[in-house]
């Protein structure tokens, strides 16, 4: 295995409110080795070269959800984006997640995103006195939670959703709705009808027009649109 170095070109969104009057795109290149398999590896090299380039990162294996950004126009995680997936010769364009206020460079203010997550009461509600041992749940009932509980709250989906761009304060967004359905689908949760009541709203739920941008960008391969569909289905079932 050779560690042949090659040069990679970037175009990066830069903005430091402490220094810059307004944001700009910076052209910058970095030498990487064949062991730098992922975009995040290259970005760490880039930061070693210019320590002012700012981005969040932590686990570098796609479970913490820190390094979500807009990569060549599509939201994704830098640590799961392979360097050899980029076309040769073209600069890699990195921008912050769209639709959220930028704090600095690729770091966005996620307050609004988490506010929506909190708004769906993302915790199990069960008012029976807790039994001494675990609450029982059949493997089939537990399977209902697959594809829901794995969300890493990276915000790739919600910030790819035009409905969330226009109404981030009123539309829960794909990530929040996925979480909402995670609790609706949980046989141990007793607040299903309250949760449905809360979501039956022209803004909170019905801003979703099933364009499926969320599904397209989810780095964990989850399907918020399907979860939203299931919420609607449950509302219909209880209404008719």
């Amino acid at each position: 295995m050779t560690n042949a170095a090659r040069t990679v070109h970037f175009k990066i969104y830069r903005y430091d409110p402490d220094q810059d009057a307004k944001p700009y795109m910076q052209d910058i290149s970095v030498e990487i080795e064949s062991t730098d398999r992922k975009l995040l590896d290259a970005m760490v090299k880039l930061k070693a070269q210019d320590d002012s380039i700012s981005f969040r990162r932590s686990c570098r294996e796609g479970v913490c959800g820190s390094d979500a950004m807009n990569i060549n126009g599509k939201n994704g995680l830098a640590c799961l984006t392979a360097m050899d997936s980029f076309p040769e010769g073209k600069p890699i364009v990195l921008r912050p997640l769209p639709g959220l206020p930028v704090i600095r460079d690729l770091i966005v203010d996620m307050t609004q995103f988490f506010k929506q997550y909190n708004s769906i009461k993302p915790y199990l509600i069960n008012n029976d006195p807790p039994p001494e041992r675990e609450r029982l749940q059949s493997p089939e009932d537990r399977e209902e939670l697959d594809g829901l509980y794995e969300c890493i709250l990276c915000a790739c989906c919600s910030t790819a959703c035009p409905s969330f761009w226009w109404n981030p304060d009123k539309f829960v967004g794909p990530a929040g709705l996925l979480a909402a359905y995670r609790f609706i689908a949980d046989t141990r949760d007793q607040a299903t009808s309250d949760r449905l009541d809360d979501l039956e709203d022209p803004y909170r739920l019905f801003r979703c027009h099933t364009i499926m941008n969320c599904v397209d960008v989810c780095p964990k391969g989850l399907n918020p649109t399907k979860a939203i569909g299931k919420i609607k289905e449950m509302m219909v079932r209880r209404a008719v």
């Binding site: 915790y123 069960n126 675990e134 609450r135 059949s138 537990r142 939670l145 949980d186 141990r188 949760d189």
Partner: peptide, 18 residues
């Protein structure tokens, strides 16, 4: 561990629900 289950942790289950 049981407390955590009560908090809502989605543990995998055996056929008997445990």
């Amino acid at each position: 561990v049981v407390e955590l289950e009560h908090y809502g942790m989605p543990f995998d289950r055996l056929d008997n629900g445990k």
